[in-house]
């Protein structure tokens, strides 16, 4: 008994540290973003003017709407691009591949999920973006020009679309991992029941998929949170220009790449750092919402099967 108590006390600090770091982190973000809220109120989230002025703090205006929309656009695009192949890959690995190949595939996926994102960014900005522009973006524009998001001709290889595709490729392994976890949670008896009724593999998978719907939604949410925070790979491919991208083939900005670009020299201005902290707050909120809903769905589902 006494030993258990001591053991618990010995472990306690580490748990406490994590919670403390989180609290310090959130309060730093809140405290540092306070000046911009006092300066311009909620305009920081509703306007899209970015006007740093030196030596005249009153004239400084920072609106984060454009990079906020950019962040959401890029993340949703990444999900749309990674979900169909991710789901197919997970099903193939689990239902069709023999054991040896299965573990090989899983290793490859693990490696891809763990690669430093700057590698994806470099590869994309130096090689992939050009092909994407000539072989996918231009044809898409020529065929689907009447849809507004494809309505403009891509002028350069660095666009919101490019960043979205790269992010999609990057988060796919992560998503596959989550979906695989989900498939494995389904009790064997369901699968056995399906086969014993004489169902084909296709029919069985359809039943499994229906069972897994909450897991898929949760995986999408968790991946979305991850995509929204990605910095370097996006920064290298999105073009980093401050406008609201109405069409996917124009350059744009995301909150995280804006912070990465501007934080170093924000000391020239009075409110810029604070505005960037407000951007950080937005990312934090987005992360909290996606992660907690995702984890909640995942947990509820695990107890239900």
């Amino acid at each position: 008994m006494k030993e258990d108590r001591l053991f618990f006390l010995a472990l306690l600090p580490f748990g406490a540290i994590v919670v403390a770091v989180f609290i310090v982190f959130v309060s730093t973000l809140l405290y540092n973003s306070l000046p911009i809220f006092i300066h311009e109120g909620l305009m920081v989230y509703t306007s899209s003017t970015w006007r740093p002025v030196e030596n005249n703090p009153e004239a400084e205006v920072y609106g984060l709407l454009a990079p906020m929309i950019g962040t959401l656009e890029v993340s949703f695009l990444a999900i749309i691009i990674s979900l169909p192949p991710g789901l197919s890959l997970a099903i193939m690995i689990e239902e069709y591949l023999p054991t040896g190949l299965k573990s090989l595939m899983e290793t490859i996926i693990e490696v891809m999920a763990g690669l430093p994102t700057v590698l994806y960014g470099m590869w994309a900005s130096l090689f992939f973006a050009d092909y994407l522009k000539s072989d996918l973006m231009i044809p898409l524009h020529e065929i689907l020009w009447f849809i507004p998001i494809f309505g403009c001709m891509p002028e350069s290889p660095y666009t919101v679309f490019t960043a979205g595709v790269i992010l999609g490729i990057m988060i796919m392994p992560y998503m596959v991992g989550l979906i695989l976890d989900g498939i494995r949670q389904i009790p064997k008896k369901i699968r056995e029941a399906c086969y014993s009724l004489g169902m084909t593999k296709y029919e069985t998978v359809r039943i499994l998929l229906r069972l897994m719907r909450p897991v898929i939604i949760a995986s999408v949410l968790l991946s979305l949170g991850r995509a929204a925070g990605e910095t370097i790979a996006v920064s290298l491919t999105i073009g980093n220009t401050y406008n609201i991208p109405e069409c996917l083939f124009t350059p744009g900005y995301t909150i995280s790449s804006l912070i990465a670009d501007q934080f170093g020299n924000s000391g020239f201005y009075v409110y810029m750092a604070s505005a960037l902290y407000a951007g950080g707050l937005f990312l934090l909120l987005l992360g909290v919402i996606t992660s907690s809903t995702g984890l909640y769905l995942m947990r509820r589902w695990k107890t239900s099967v």
Binding site: T49, E155, N240, T241, Y242, N243, A260, D261
Partner: peptide
């Protein structure tokens, strides 16, 4: 004129920013 400005060319979609 400044260290960080709103580039008019960005509105045409032909502007790009590099860090």
């Amino acid at each position: 004129v400044g260290k960080d400005i709103e580039w008019p060319v960005d509105r045409t979609g032909r502007g790009l920013g590099g860090k």
